[in-house]
């Protein structure tokens, strides 16, 4: 039950993109086609879960015993950056087709604030390891839903002809606003 609440809360009520504004760059950047947005979300799911587990362990096993919690930001970003690099190398060797599909998105993930954001939120919420994993997976599914729905809308949007000054980013942002409004309907669900 507890995990179900974490899941619904993360996917619908506090959607990571539409309510918490994390990961906006990939949300606006790679969402012009449904196909690429699926690839991006899969890469995020993978890296976010791995990163949350490793930063959780490092925080509790290294930073807390040494009483250097203030080094959190520096450590986390290094862990995430090296993790992304490692995943890239391993994936290239082990599964070339997967690398072909996700490879281009991997370097982008280092500066995806969703990954760092979730790693920090897990510590702030004082979750245990299992809850943290559930939290990370739910948030990446929320990211997936927001991204794919938005990409679907944007594919349709290309067929229309908005006023010249609204083309591109402005109309995309306003569309995202309406989508976020729709997601507000889930408020109070948990």
């Amino acid at each position: 039950m507890e995990y179900l609440i974490i899941f619904i809360g993360a996917v619908f009520v506090n959607n990571i993109v539409l309510a918490q504004f994390l990961g906006i760059c990939p949300f606006l950047g790679v969402s012009s086609k449904v196909e690429t947005s699926i690839g991006m979300s899969a890469a995020v799911l993978f890296v976010m879960t791995m990163a949350t587990i490793s930063t959780y362990l490092i925080f509790n096993l290294v930073l807390v015993p040494l009483e250097i919690e203030f080094m959190r930001t520096v450590t986390y970003i290094l862990v995430i950056a090296s993790l992304v690099q490692m995943v890239e190398i391993v994936m290239k060797k082990v599964s070339p087709p997967l690398y072909q599909a996700l490879g281009v998105f991997l370097p982008l993930i280092t500066t995806n604030c969703a990954v760092l954001g979730v790693a920090i939120l897990v510590i702030q919420n004082q979750f245990n390891l299992l809850q943290s994993v559930a939290f990370a997976i739910s948030h990446s599914i929320g990211f997936f839903i927001a991204l794919v729905v938005f990409a679907g809308i944007r594919e349709q949007l290309d067929l229309y002809d908005p006023p010249a000054v609204m083309k591109g980013a402005p109309i995309a942002l306003i569309t995202a606003g309406l989508l976020s409004l729709a997601f507000m309907g889930f408020a109070g669900l948990v």
Binding site: A164, A169, A176
Partner: peptide, 21 residues
């Protein structure tokens, strides 16, 4: 609330676009 952020920024960027044009 969150939707307002997207909508206001969208219009602001459109305004800057119009200004530059």
């Amino acid at each position: 609330m969150p939707p307002g952020a997207f909508i206001v920024l969208g219009f602001l960027i459109a305004f800057v676009n119009a200004l530059m044009k």
